[in-house]
């Protein structure tokens, strides 16, 4: 029933998706929340990249082209062999990144954003224009999602703190649902409008 997507994702594959579609995502993605989004916009998009930040810029430029950002503040354990392991990795509320997301999608050529709760008009418009989707992860399914994280490839900007850093991770069959597609449709808007109408009918009784 689910569509399998592998990073890098083509525009054609993204445009074939519609709200309500289930997706199993595989490949290397980056976590990023408030600090990471603010940093990307201020350091790379609004301004010219300073030479000291060049290395990370190149990593992101390559990794995010056709790639995906995940709104997640993980719980991470350092194993005895020195490798990091994701212990819990549920989604965090996405709407906080609304001021930055559209610019990040455009600049880096993102094909998807994973999170919880959906986003607003600016992001929806950027998805339509540049060919991207919003993928809703299952809130609370922290153990299962951590299990789909097969490898921590690298961590960048750990000085932002563990939850806020860019964790570059390889995932396999990460389950999510398309709730905003590249055709201007938002499942959140649809469900909110439908339920509002039904509520009005029930309250009128």
């Amino acid at each position: 029933m689910s569509t399998r997507l592998t990073i890098p994702i083509s525009e054609k594959d993204i445009r074939a998706l519609h709200i309500g579609d289930q997706v199993l995502l595989s490949g290397t993605i980056f976590t990023g929340r408030d600090a990471a989004h603010k940093y990307m916009v201020e350091t790379f998009i609004k301004n010219k990249c300073p030479s000291g930040e060049r290395a990370l810029y190149d990593v992101l430029k390559t990794g995010l082209k056709g790639g995906v950002i995940y709104h997640c503040g993980p719980v991470v354990r350092k194993r005895e062999d020195g490798e990091y392991q994701f212990v819990a990795a549920g989604p965090t509320t996405s709407i906080r990144e609304e001021p930055y997301q559209a610019a990040v999608i455009e600049h880096f050529g993102l094909r998807g954003v994973i999170g919880k709760g959906g986003m607003s008009e600016k992001t929806l418009a950027a998805c339509q224009k540049h060919g991207a989707v919003y993928l809703h992860a299952i809130g609370g399914a922290a153990t299962l999602i951590a299990g789909s994280v097969k490898q921590v490839v690298a961590v960048h900007k750990l000085d932002f703190g563990v939850p806020e850093a860019f964790w570059q991770i390889r995932v396999e069959d990460f389950p999510c649902v398309v709730t905003m597609d590249a055709h201007g449709q938002s499942l959140h808007e649809k469900v909110a409008a439908d339920s509002k109408r039904k509520l009005a009918a029930l309250l009128g009784k």
Binding site: A88, G90, G140
Partner: peptide
């Protein structure tokens, strides 16, 4: 095949995994 069914499927798998691994069901 609906997203609703898929979400519940994922939730139920997560519940079973948490039970067998002794890990918290939700990170919060």
């Amino acid at each position: 095949g609906t997203a609703a069914e898929g979400a519940l499927q994922t939730i139920l798998e997560n519940v079973r995994m948490s039970r067998t691994t002794g890990r918290p069901i939700c990170q919060d």
